[in-house]
Amino acid sequence: MTPLELLTWARGPGLSIALAICAFGILLRLFEIFSLGRKADLSKAREHSPGSGWRTILSRSLPPPGLMKRAPVTYIGGYVFHLGFAITLFFFVPHIELVRGLTGLSWPGLPTQVIDISAVAGLLALIAVLASRLSNPVKRLLSGFQDYLAWLLTFLPLATGYLAFHHLLIDYTLALALHILSVELLLVALPFTKLFHTVSVFVSRWYNGDIFGRKGVAS
């Protein structure tokens, strides 16, 4: 199989299979989670706190006071990675073209220099948080196989995309094929690992905010 044939497979059947597994998995998990439900709270709400859930979505996206001192790598690394990853994912023109090809939606992209910086920032942040996870005994104790898997599956698309864009180490066509394949791996794993937080994060934040609001700790 030549690199071009691999790329053609990745853009064709590979992408269809990955997206299908991803869609299947997300729907399965969402139905499962929502159908579990929660016990009805029969007690009277301690405080009337309309919108507490929505406010929590915002407040928990902002850094809590003191985190910078307690966990600077988590603090900075977390933000830099998520922002770098999101900018690279949503504002690189070929990525927007992919979304346009799938949904018909499109928006303006950013110059490649900006994407380049955000991708490098994302990569460095990922490396920093991994180093911190490995060197900090508490984090290491709390980490399992799935955490390292999630890290790898996130790291690979950024790394292969960077190699492809800059024509480093491997032939561009092969690098592009590997990049798309790595994204497909990420899509396949997304519903079944901690990576599912990309779908569930705001739902769980809303629920936490709302239930704590009822218990008198409104945000």
Partner: peptide
């Protein structure tokens, strides 16, 4: 089609997979 676009239409397959996921999710529920 740009190089980053899928080669073949995927909507039908993804739609069917999503429906399958919903059905499997309901069964699980």
């Amino acid at each position: 089609k740009p190089l980053s676009m899928p080669i073949a239409p995927v909507q039908m397959m993804v739609g069917a997979a999503a429906a399958g996921g919903a059905i499997a999710g309901t069964a699980m529920a």
